[in-house]
């Protein structure tokens, strides 16, 4: 299991693309939005929590289609299914690896981008906390979507269509927590709900994803 985690992280770092692309995309969103919306600090401060969360979500989505597709194409997925580790574990570990190379770096650079978007000072802490709690859910839900579309041509587009509605609760609670934090309000409720979604998704979705992979391979 740990070998699989190390392999996936190493592959992502060596191939470069997946690792840097999400971060670059996130940066672009944070640069383009003020250019589109205008430089008014008040407006930017108000929309910053939502923009940062939407940006992180889309950046996460960007590398999902390769989560299982690469292993499917080179035959590794067949070999992993016949290997002596449960496929549910493979899915969970690959989702964790995806989070380590997308969600985690996104969480760490988000405060810098918060400066660009004029995020109010009390919001930074909650931005990092909510992304740290919420981005694992994005990776696990994405892994489920990637498992559904693994054998398909043009699966990437379908993957976005399947995954985006599933991302709604995570996005709402995550952005709400930052918004409330930035306004100095209590953030306990949305953060607790966000953590609940992450915990539930991480516990249950690997089973659904593993079932989908088995169906797609047969």
């Amino acid at each position: 299991m740990i070998a699989l985690l190390i392999r996936d992280v190493r592959l992502a770092v060596r191939a470069g693309g997946g690792f840097g692309l999400g971060l670059a995309f996130f940066l672009l969103v944070a640069v383009l939005v003020p250019l589109g919306v205008g430089p008014d600090g008040g407006t930017l401060a108000r929309i910053a929590p939502g923009i940062l969360w939407v940006g992180a979500l889309l950046a996460c989505l960007l590398s999902l289609d390769r989560l299982f597709a690469l292993d499917y194409e080179d035959g590794s997925l067949d070999l992993l299914v016949t290997a002596p580790i449960p496929l549910e574990g493979v899915v969970a570990v690959k989702a964790l690896a995806h989070w380590m190379v997308t969600g985690l770096p996104l969480t760490l650079v988000a405060p810098v981008l918060g400066v660009l978007l004029n995020l109010p000072a009390p919001g930074y802490f909650w931005l990092v906390v909510s992304l740290a709690l919420g981005t694992p859910a994005l990776s696990v839900i994405g892994a489920f979507g990637a498992a559904l579309t693994v054998g398909l041509k043009r699966g990437g587009l379908l993957l976005s269509l399947l995954v985006l509605p599933l991302y709604v609760p995570t996005l709402i609670f995550g952005a709400e927590a930052v918004k409330r934090g930035a306004e100095g309000m209590a953030t306990g409720t949305p953060l607790a709900l966000l953590a609940a979604i992450t915990a539930g998704a991480a516990a249950l979705l690997p089973f659904a994803a593993a079932a989908a992979i088995r169906i797609n391979l047969r």
Partner: peptide
């Protein structure tokens, strides 16, 4: 499951 979650999330929002 996620549609139900979204329903509550949207109410909350």
């Amino acid at each position: 499951v996620f549609a139900l979650l979204s329903r509550y999330a949207v109410n909350f929002w």
